[in-house]
């Protein structure tokens, strides 16, 4: 069971570079959508170009494609979600977060075993982080007030650096969960072996 490393990979390569801009649930949804679309299209481009362009040039093309998609997404996002105009520049950077490039890794093992769980972890973390940080940091959920007095429960979570604490704690919980799963598997195997001997 390699849950911990897949999860950590999604956090390190995907979530961290985007957390400064995902203080609300809408921002998190927009950033996640842009990254996933950029990743899928960059991956398709890589597949298409694999036989035509040599390795170093291929990366340049992939970087350009993903950046262009993210820029377009960043400019379109304020029309689809209630976002501030200041965020569009930052959303444009979403296309060059390394998780986009995971999709383009040519290693077959990586593509088969790692990409789907990594992206699912990324989406879950981004959305949960957006929801929790908006609720705790701003006292709102999807821009609707949820606290009686309109005050934030933990204003610190609404700041970009508050995300560090959130994700540090998330990573520790994931490691504990992974360790417990491994322990359960081992205990289960030992139990089966004992029954077999009897």
């Amino acid at each position: 069971m390699n849950l911990s490393s897949t999860f950590e990979k999604a956090l390190i390569l995907g979530a961290y570079p985007l957390l400064a801009l995902t203080v609300t649930a809408y921002e998190a949804t927009a950033a996640t959508a842009i990254v996933i679309i950029a990743a899928v299209l960059a991956w398709l481009t890589t597949l298409w170009l694999r036989s035509l362009i040599p390795e170093p040039l291929r990366w340049l093309v992939v970087v350009a494609v993903s950046a262009a998609i993210a820029l377009g997404g960043g400019l379109l996002a304020p029309f689809l979600f209630p976002l501030s105009t200041a965020i569009t520049t930052r959303l444009a950077v979403a296309g060059i977060t390394p998780i986009v490039f995971i999709a383009c890794v040519t290693d077959e093992r990586e593509t088969r075993g790692g990409i789907v769980p990594t992206f699912i972890s990324f989406v879950v973390v981004m959305l949960v982080a957006g929801l929790l940080r908006e609720a705790l940091g701003n006292g709102t959920l999807f821009l609707r007030q949820i606290t009686a007095s309109g005050t934030a429960v933990a204003g610190i979570m609404g700041t970009p650096t508050g995300a560090f604490l959130f994700l540090g704690a998330t990573m520790i919980v994931a490691r504990l969960a992974a360790r417990r799963l491994v322990a359960d598997d081992t205990a289960g195997e030992a139990h089966t072996l004992q029954r077999g001997k009897r």
Partner: peptide, 23 residues
């Protein structure tokens, strides 16, 4: 690093800094 070419990890920093100052 983690299965990707190392230079890719520097791109968010380099592009982001320029975007931040231009803004």
């Amino acid at each position: 690093r983690l299965g990707l070419p190392a230079p890719l990890y520097a791109l968010p920093l380099l592009v982001g800094s320029q975007a931040l100052l231009t803004q």
